[in-house]
Each structure stands twice: as structure tokens, then as C-alpha cells.
Design a protein around this nucleic acid. Structure first.
Lengths: 154, 154
DNA sequence: GTTTCATGTAACATTACATGTTACGAATCT
DNA sequence: AGATTCGTAACATGTAATGTTACATGAAAC
């Protein structure tokens, strides 16, 4: 089962935008993530609707942040992405007629809900500002001389 | 993202076996789960290797339980299935060169690990015996007159 | 105004993976 | 021997994520 990495990808994009003055093009963001500009636009669509980012067309256009990083949590971003399922495992059937399956589902569901709730809680505790600060700490520790965009090389 | 339901399926199978005297054929189990006998054999392979179930070939053969339901937890079963990932979301890249991504991964990883640990803990608290007891409770409540195999109809 | 740049989006292609199916060999019972 | 049942490999199918192409729309530069 392949893991969904949209959240990870979007956060990556947002932090890059935070380090950048003025709009950033989908093209540039896509290169930073080794993917396609269209993919970037696609996953950013939800964020735009929620007002977390803005996009501008034409010359000098691109994406820019439109929110206070202190106020937005990873959970907010997750929800802006449509709140995809967090757990990789689930029940074979919802509302099964089989009593055996009902018992199985009941047992698993509690465990699933608890884990999901914990995860959401944790995501709600981390702001984009905290993430950005962590990045800056790493950047300073590693030798901030290099240009930001180059940091992708490794 | 489609959820993996092997654990759910296997538990279903195990509880059915618990209600059945003597070996149960893959064919019968498959019918109960609206799937294919080969699929049943496939997902049972791990359990057999761990000694939780036995299989016998030929006439009168099939699957039977080979463990103490009191001693086996849902976590054990999950691990016997190869311990597939529990979380549906993950990082875009492990060990990225990009510092931005490192910061993102670090933040997400803690949340992920905590949630996964909680889920495993919960699964470790539920024994197959507890599951079976829950089923019997439901069965009695609903009117145990009907035959077990028929319980699938709904 | 026309050219260039950039997003917006639909449609299509590709990949990855879980699940389903077929086929046949090996073991066991009648 | 014949029927049954598992074991397993090989192949087929369904579906979701991701990548790509194509073209329309809007905005700036010239």
C-alpha cells in the first residue's frame, strides 16, 4: 500500500514559498519537488480555496502565501487538501450483515478512531511557523552560505 | 487511497473458524467473504508460518486454529501478515537532501510514530478470544436460532 | 495589440498495487 | 484410481495516485 504524500509535498512547497520574496511559479516549485507543474497546481487548488495561498497569472505571476504562518497548523493544511484518510488499514465492509464482521469492525474501529484522533491532534499542534523555524535552525547549523534553491541538490 | 483490509478479512476468517468444528475449506471461507479461495490461502500463509493456524490437504482437509485465542492479539495477527503500514500518509522522500524537506519530515515523523504506536498498543490489547466473545454477545442478542453460516445474509 | 508568461482545468497516459482468476502440482482421503 | 483440497506461480482486472498533454484564460511587457 502506497502512502499518500500530498501533505508532505504541500508543506515542502509552502516552506519554500516562505523563503521566497514575491510569487513563485508552479514550474519552479515543481522542479524543486521533481514533479510536474500541473501536479503542483492541482494540490494547491484546495489551499487557494481556503485562502492560505494566492495565485496570480501572467508575467511575474505565481504562488504566494496569504496567511499568518503562526496561525495555520499542519492539520489545517491536511483539511484543506480534502482531509484524505490517515489510516492505511480499514474494514472490509461497512455496515456488514455478518455478525462476525460486525464484531471485528467494532474492535478495529475504536483502535482506528483513537489513533486517527491522536494524529490529528498532533498535526494541530504544529504551526507552519514552527516548521519554518525548524528549517532555519537546520539551515544555520549546516552552513547557511549556500543559496536556498540550491539546497535541493543534497 | 484505498484502505488495506487484510487484517479485517483475516480476523473475519479466524472467528469463523472458531465457530466451526474441524477444518474449514478455503472454498467455504471464500464464499463467506465473497472472494476467491486462492485469496484466502494467500492471506492465511503468514498465519500458518507463525503457527496460528494449520492447513490440511485432501479429503476433509482445510484450515483449523492452532493457537490459544486468549493468547493471540490483533497485533500478533497484524504482524503475521507482514506488518503492513498502518498509516496512509507518509513522507515524500526518506533521507532527503533538501533541508526544507528534512524539517517537514521531522515534524511529521513524530506525529506518525506516536499515532502508529498508539494503534499498535490498542491492537495488542485485544485478544482473539475477546473478539469471539463480542461476537457471541451479538449473536445471542440478535437471536441465536439461525445457523452460523447463514449469518452472512444479513 | 500582439507576444510572452503564468495559472486553471479537462482529458488522457502511466504506474503501482491490491485483488481476482486460472492452471497445475502435491498431498491426503475414500 | 479418483476425488478433494491445499500451495503456488502466472496472469488478468480494477482502481487510485501520479504524471503528461493540450488548450483556454488572464496579466504583464514590448
Amino acid at each position: 500500500m502506497k502512502r499518500n504524500s500530498q501533505l508532505s509535498g504541500v508543506l515542502h512547497i509552502l516552506l519554500h514559498m516562505a523563503e521566497h520574496d514575491g510569487p513563485v511559479t508552479s514550474e519552479l516549485l515543481a522542479r524543486a519537488m521533481t514533479t510536474n507543474p500541473v501536479v503542483v497546481r492541482r494540490i494547491m487548488a484546495g489551499l487557494r480555496e481556503q485562502g492560505y495561498v494566492r495565485s496570480e497569472k501572467g508575467h511575474g505571476g505565481g504562488w504566494s502565501l496569504a496567511c499568518d504562518l503562526q496561525k495555520v497548523t499542519l492539520r489545517d493544511i491536511h483539511e484543506a487538501l480534502g482531509g484524505p484518510p490517515l489510516l492505511a488499514i480499514g474494514n472490509r465492509t461497512e455496515a456488514p450483515g455478518c455478525l462476525v464482521e460486525q464484531a471485528v469492525n467494532a474492535a478495529l474501529d475504536t483502535a482506528f478512531r483513537d489513533a486517527e484522533a491522536l494524529l490529528l491532534e498532533r498535526l494541530g499542534e504544529v504551526t507552519l511557523a514552527a516548521l519554518s523555524a525548524d528549517f532555519h535552525k537546520r539551515f544555520a547549523a549546516r552552513g547557511g552560505a549556500r543559496e536556498l534553491e540550491k539546497a535541493h541538490a543534497g
